[in-house]
Amino acid sequence: MNSEETITKASVEDIDRIIHEPARLNIMLYLYVVENADFVYLLHKTGLSKGNLSVHLQKLEANGYLEIMKEFLNRKPHTMVRLTQRGRDAFTAYRESLLNILQ
């Protein structure tokens, strides 16, 4: 195994598996380009079901990648979501490692 293969293998293993899942990658991408957003925005952009979206959001929150704020607007639940700095850094690092592998 030469050094190039070692780097590639190491980079593949370094990939953040929390972000690498397609649904979560989609969520991270659409949150990365905004300051914050609500649950309906993510439903619309990702096309996921409500249950599925909630599960993925909880997983990302548990890893400290995003912050979920729940409130009531006109007696209806309203969920706001935003990427934390850790989430932004993780997404940038994920993007860079993926580009390194593909180049």
Binding site: E35, N36, A37, D38, V40, H44
Partner: peptide, 11 residues
């Protein structure tokens, strides 16, 4: 707008 495509604060 917001009930259809949600709200997002654009950067």
């Amino acid at each position: 707008t917001y009930p259809r495509i949600g709200y997002a604060k654009v950067r």
